[in-house]
Design a protein around this nucleic acid. Structure first.
Lengths: 347, 347
DNA sequence: ACGTCCGCATGAAACGTTTTACTAGAGCGA
DNA sequence: TCGCTCTAGTAAAACGTTTCATGCGGACGT
């Protein structure tokens, strides 16, 4: 706008420049910004005007230093490429914005080392709090994080500890819903394509799946478990190849994740099989791409955005004064969304 | 913080506690951390030991205040749900980590207001720099951001200005490749499903598409343009419905985005049409889900991760001393990945 | 007219680092 | 012994805010 080189001190303008120019003290400027009621209407206006004129921007570092903590919460997810976490992030961001705090989203990529690196960084930043989907199932990196006194909330991971809140979804029920649906569709031999078994989510879903077969009076043979290293599309393709080699071959598959399911779907198509006629598939998360798949995927929906908002709200309430904050664990119920990939074999 | 029971630490330990306990001055502790060579081996060891013992963690706010800028770069993307941007983020994160700086990823969701809100926040944070995919095509919010003196790099957006670097992909060529491929496949009437026309990417791809039809000696009628509000799956479905109503109906579609293409694919399937026999589809970005779609999608690949790393490197080099930094605009070339969704009509 | 309270504004003291200027001593050549 | 350099360490000054303890008139109640 103003190309005239009048104020060449770019970004250097501090609160004292404003004070000087407005003919008031530093403290008054600060008050005009933070407690407008303690300052008379016309000085307030004058200060505001000077601020605009000079393009003054508060230094968060200085505010933080004084306050002892920042206005940022961190969000550490397992996989930034998983749309489920993108939704969680959206929710968290929205809830955080309402309180004027920013969200810093980082990706541990299921790597324990990266996770602990990020946690140290958060500690140095004195972030207001951390939303974390832990990769380290032993809880080691978080145990050492706790001593910093920074509150954190577990996301998508139920936790019995009384040191923190958690927001999660009942994964056992989710697995049970999925497999019960398949059994009701007439399938007698189901495969469970799991991610890394040390992720609690995967394990819980397996337990639920097993529960469903038991309730149907089937024995352990009825549920074949295929484990994969990662919860992504490539692993799904890989699992698909393995699945096709199984004898007897299951007629239905429950995947721990929609990414796995999509990869598997692709592998199965490539092998010339039809879904759901030759193989029924259920995914998990109900990401957008599940419905958009050419054979729309039956999936267990988790309220991802809701999880994000709830987690952020809990975290903020924990830090926001709220002296009587009691840690709680919220567990949402999943919902089975039936689509074409599991149309019943016989109607 | 005066929890009576917990007498020791909890984040309260500062550099002076370390200094006192180790029997040295504050400055020496600082030196032991930042310039280990200026301190004798055994005091250094002693300081290190005390740091571990007390669980001391540097306060980034204080460091920033002194340094004048933070160790964080911001990444502001158009759509956090688009896997393309997830890849860009991965790249940026990786490059940043090598220099010990963190990445703060935020989502403007194509909303100009959110964008400018985030930019102010970045200014307050005195971030080291900003990687931005602008939603405001007029460049307004960035123009006012410039006066803060914080360097920024345009991502996925070519820019002729000499005030900043940019990393992008030649979208005109991308559009041209896509449509030329379709024309070579024997299609004479092609539709272009565009996102919001005020996004430069969409517009450039349209120009490229038009260029291809012209090169083939076709007139403007040969390219029907359908515009959508957003670059997501839902809009793709919507466009699919509109497309099916067109008379004469195009035999091939080029989508500005894989998300659009996937939505369109779904709509087309639902209408009982076959791909590519009844309709050929080309997407853009070559996200993972493009290959994983039941009809693997031909797509124009952009080196997303590379874009992220390059952008971050440019940004960091601009801030990292480098007094003779000359702004440059890197333009990558896109690559057409042919898959089943465009198998030639007659072989 | 006197004490009192109130509304506004002020100066100075934090907050926790990094960095600069300085010192005390040691080694050393002349 | 003197001067010189070198090493290891120190004290103090920033950095830009917020907040606390004051100050200073003037309006108010009596």
């Amino acid at each position: 706008m103003r190309a005239a080189g009048d104020d060449h001190n770019t970004g250097e303008v501090g609160i004292k420049d404003v004070a000087h120019r407005a003919g008031v003290s530093i403290g008054t400027v600060s008050n005009a910004l933070n407690r407008p009621d303690r300052v008379s209407a016309d000085t307030r206006a004058r200060v505001r005007a000077v601020i605009d004129e000079l393009g003054y921007v508060r230094s968060e570092s200085a505010r933080q230093l004084r306050a002892g903590h920042s206005r940022i919460v961190a969000l550490l997810v397992l996989d930034i490429g998983n749309p489920f976490f993108a939704d969680v992030a959206r929710g968290a961001e929205q809830a955080a914005r309402e309180q004027g705090v920013g969200v810093m989203m980082c990706n541990s990529a299921q790597d324990v080392e990266a996770e602990s690196l990020y946690l140290s960084m958060f500690a140095e930043q004195r972030v207001r709090g951390v939303l974390v989907t832990p990769a380290d199932t032993t809880g080691g990196s978080l145990a050492s994080f706790r001593r910093h006194g920074i509150p954190y909330v577990f996301v998508d991971r139920v936790v019995d500890s009384h040191d923190s809140c958690s927001v999660s979804v009942d994964d056992v029920t989710g697995g049970r819903l999925a497999v019960r649906h398949l059994l009701e569709g007439g399938h007698a031999h189901v495969a469970y394509v799991s991610g890394p078994a040390n992720l609690a989510q995967c394990e819980d879903r397996r337990v639920g799946a097993r529960m469903a077969t038991e309730e149907a009076g089937l024995d352990a043979e009825a549920l074949t478990v295929l484990e994969t290293d990662r919860l992504d599309v490539a692993s799904g393709r890989d699992a698909g190849a393995r699945l096709l080699g199984l004898r007897p071959r299951p007629t239905a598959v429950f995947c721990a994740n929609d990414l796995l399911a999509l990869g598997l779907l692709q592998a199965v198509f490539d092998a010339g099989m039809r879904v759901p006629e030759d193989l029924a598939i259920v995914g998990y998360d109900d990401i957008e791409f599940a419905e958009a798949a050419a054979v729309p995927l039956t999936s267990v929906r988790q309220p991802a955005v809701r999880i994000g908002t709830t987690a952020a709200e809990m975290l903020l309430s924990e830090t926001e004064g709220e002296p009587d904050h009691a840690h709680e664990s919220i567990v949402y119920q999943p919902e089975l969304i039936v689509r074409r990939s599991t149309l019943p074999r016989r109607s």
